[in-house]
Write a protein that binds this DNA or RNA. Sequence first.
DNA 1: CGCCTCGACAGAGCAATGCTCTCGTCGGTT
DNA 2: AACCGACGAGAGCATTGCTCTGTCGAGGCG
Lengths: 229, 229
Amino acid sequence: MRRVSAPRTARARVRAQLTTEIADVARTHLATDGAAALSLRAVARELGMASSAVYRYFPSRDDLLTTLIVDAYDALGDAAERAEAAVARDDLRGRLRAACAAARDWALTHPHEYSLLYGSPVPGYAAPETTIAPAGRVGLLVTGIVADGLASGALTPLPGGADVIEPRALADVGLTDDPTRAALVVAAWSGLFGAIGFELHGHTHNVVSDHAAWFRGVVDTHADALGLP
Amino acid sequence: MRRVSAPRTARARVRAQLTTEIADVARTHLATDGAAALSLRAVARELGMASSAVYRYFPSRDDLLTTLIVDAYDALGDAAERAEAAVARDDLRGRLRAACAAARDWALTHPHEYSLLYGSPVPGYAAPETTIAPAGRVGLLVTGIVADGLASGALTPLPGGADVIEPRALADVGLTDDPTRAALVVAAWSGLFGAIGFELHGHTHNVVSDHAAWFRGVVDTHADALGLP
DNA sequence: CGCCTCGACAGAGCAATGCTCTCGTCGGTT
DNA sequence: AACCGACGAGAGCATTGCTCTGTCGAGGCG
């Protein structure tokens, strides 16, 4: 949420304060009513200010949404990273399980925020540059687990590996010599969020009885595909 | 789209006609502008009628959306079923590949409709009963492939199988004696739409270079997990 | 210490939305 | 032929995002 690092003047300080205050109120509205119902006027009302005053802090509703999106990505990333960090480094499968379970928990506790991130994009909203870095955190986390396995020798590169993954992305995460597994990582990543989305949006209603157990199975299926011991 | 089977009177016929006409215009708006931008008034304008007149045919915007959703589910289901039907019955993996590829193609050609089905639910919109049957068609299709394999002996039931899937759903699709595989089917189903959604919503931007090949890999991973020969 | 500029805010206003209500009108039925 | 009900139009209400104009107060400069 911090917009600028050092609020020098008192003016700037109170401005930063109000900015976060607006974002906080907006976040609660988002959490209770969903993204599409997020009304700038309602936020202003709750803050006791005129709707036009909010525009001094956020040039448009989309900008407000952007900061909420970035915050949500960060919260989700934090949750997953914290859970994953608590597991022994050489327990690759355990790290994946922990990260995935934390992501699911976060999604279940923040359904509307999750939908904002991984559901249909908001109409007329084009994700700006600032969102792409936080968006990759969970993917990076999974990638890191696999990269660790390769580095320690617990995993050996898989054969094949056509040009499905961007070489640039491959190099960034140190998986240049195992592109096949990189593709599997992306598959696991998307499958993970597909499973969470299905549960969240009710597509498994009357089909899955124990969602937690089913999700664990999904994660283990991906762990098997990745060859995690 | 057909609302009632036999329009007896001329009145009923012209009514049915106008009803589908409204839905058709709404569908084009949905296809071009997305679900949230679908405006009842804009549809009425394009049809040259007062906005209030539309309410004689659809009691609310949500009802219009519901018929669009049902139609979209049916179109997606049709596409997948047609593609799958063209493959030799004993080629289980080929059938899965065909169905999945068709689903992806349909999603890429109808992104907004796809988002309406598998993206975040529209705010304040509660999916009525009528949507759940068409929604399950693609899942049923995948299930049918596995069930065929079990019936022909190409597949043998997997061990284990905790109570993760609803017994009722298990019985409905004839997978009572292979609950483990049923859970894998649901996993494949959700993973499939997770992958499509990732591609569609740009989460794999700068990561995946060849989406078609990557998607084939995802499908084959699930086919492997399901044990398809 | 006084002035003055600039940021902050409020309110009115515009175009648009979903939905309701009322009021004519025309078609099909008894 | 009379009538009843479906149909369509128009006005209206509450709401939204966003802009514009005017006013006030606090901070900086002379």
